[in-house]
Design a protein around this nucleic acid. Sequence first.
DNA 1: GTGAAAGCGCTAACAT
DNA 2: ATGTTAGCGCTTTCAC
Lengths: 366, 366
Amino acid sequence: MPVSLADVARAAGVSNATASRVLNNSDYPVASKTRLKVLEVAEELGYRPNLIARGLRTEQTFTIGLIVENVLSPFIPPITRGIHDYLSQHDYFSIIINSDWDPEVESAAIADLSQRHVDGIIFVESYTRSSDEVAKLIEKPHIFVHRLFNSLNRNSVVPDDLYGARLAVRHLACLGHRRIAFINGPEDWDAAVNRLAGYQEELAAWGIPFDLTLVGRGDWQVQSGFVVTQQLLTCRPRPTAIFAANDLMALGVIYAVQDAGLRVPEDIAVVGFDDRDFSGFVRPAITTVKMPCEEMGRISAEFLLRLISQEVDVIEPTLVKGELVVRQSCGALTGEWQFEPEQSSILRQQRLLHDDCREPLPDHEL
Amino acid sequence: MPVSLADVARAAGVSNATASRVLNNSDYPVASKTRLKVLEVAEELGYRPNLIARGLRTEQTFTIGLIVENVLSPFIPPITRGIHDYLSQHDYFSIIINSDWDPEVESAAIADLSQRHVDGIIFVESYTRSSDEVAKLIEKPHIFVHRLFNSLNRNSVVPDDLYGARLAVRHLACLGHRRIAFINGPEDWDAAVNRLAGYQEELAAWGIPFDLTLVGRGDWQVQSGFVVTQQLLTCRPRPTAIFAANDLMALGVIYAVQDAGLRVPEDIAVVGFDDRDFSGFVRPAITTVKMPCEEMGRISAEFLLRLISQEVDVIEPTLVKGELVVRQSCGALTGEWQFEPEQSSILRQQRLLHDDCREPLPDHEL
DNA sequence: GTGAAAGCGCTAACAT
DNA sequence: ATGTTAGCGCTTTCAC
């Protein structure tokens, strides 16, 4: 049987109000003697406020809703992890619901969360409709994180794909490559649009002419990277490097190159995007641009709490930068390869073959 | 501004009590005419009960807590997905907390969840201490799912590792292998103990003598599979098949075999365990025993709700069977390989080289 | 078959 | 500086 505020008040010989004031650190004046007494009694009795009751009274539940596309999707766990880390520091908890791309489910989720009086909602990768449409369904504070289409709306946090693509291309250019092919994702994805832009911008910065025959399009899956690469390898002069817009396709690239009797990275350098878990232990391990999932999560949680506290009432679209993770497939490393333990960020001991270049990508800050 | 029960009652010209009875489908007698009226008005006003208020009154929040080791761990998302799927069908929601192997955090999480008056708790892969110790901290219904050590306690749901290992060995035996090596995980893990037992039992069922020199021990990581395999390859006669206790080590096995100038599966057949996402698109794709995560999740959620409704007051330890996923590394398939799209369970078109054997493993049902 | 009223545990406005 | 009291929205006895 849990001990209530009334129990504490009685045991301390004060009124509920006083006990409440003390235990909430209210700035309301309370004699330090009574304050101490209450604190002592509360401690002794092991008092823990009933958050349900408090929530009913204050209309604040310290709970937020997370509507995610599907927890099984690769970026969802790290994003939610970032969110949780921030929330737990602020005594907030979250309820997760999978929407499975279904607008009906999403609407129902919003209604359910409202019924539970969450203080706000974060939409993770959900994009069954425009954010304006979604916004109409909610009166509560909300944030969109890693929205996959039409992402540059207010209250949204997304990866800086343009910057990431520049990082990848820059790395290859630093290594001396001048014929750098690009395998992009489907054109309706924001990620594909922005990564292409980054590819082009960085090429331009190095004075490398843009060559359409070096650009292919896949569907994010391994097989598409494989197929497109077979095509690319027929180009003359042959590309010396291939940048794939995600790691899955980069793996397909590697397979196609190997099947053609060529080696990665010696004959063709490969760089991917995302930094998926497998990228560290396939052969060769994939050099890639890390998707800053945890950071996006943290940032969006931070923004949401700001919205909730009404410190601000709208968040400008926010781009989060990922960083380059250098492994084997680009050819920048020498030395014996250590398998990466899962989920560790231990840096490898290999030496970079080139001093990390400080060429292009300079003007571009965000 | 949300519409309350009182609003509905007033608009329908009845008392709060009557409205409540109707809207809760209480078996309390209400004239069907008034019932209809209330329902109609509620619909029209878009009434949605305030779950916080209801929770305060009924002491039931329809929320359960999920204390997970870390959402970034590979099995956690599918387990939570299974839990969510079951819960959402029963109008339950869940709050997730990462314990990060820290008993202090776990204790705090239990306290926090209690403060929020969750109806029950599921511990996912958390094993910072004995379940008896944990049980002492909670007065609420709780279930342990995929507990990694000392798992066979009451109220726990775990994979049937012994069965899974038998499946793997059986498959190799069916393919004609008689020198089957085994790379196990660290001996303090339940999974390692049970998989070894399964390996031995199935070997015995086929009349294959147990040979200690064919058993190695890794630490679940790729590199350990690699190193142990180098050792194993020096055995004479050489093993013709290697069963690794997880897919990560199986990958290390494949690399070591390839580095020795041998081929998988032609020279050495390999079977892993877990069915991790990468297993379908590394080369060769890994034949493995699927860890039944989603099913374990569903089952544990089902059990928890049963505990909550007091339909039962204790759950016997429950083993969940995984199934064999046949891919390339075992040599049972012929034909062109299709890369597996992520997260699809589409079956491949290859033909099995052998009719699926119905030899040993017959008596063993659970 | 229906309504009045109490009360879950808490906070906050209003006394004193 | 402290206490009294009302009430958040709901369910549930109890009375009619």
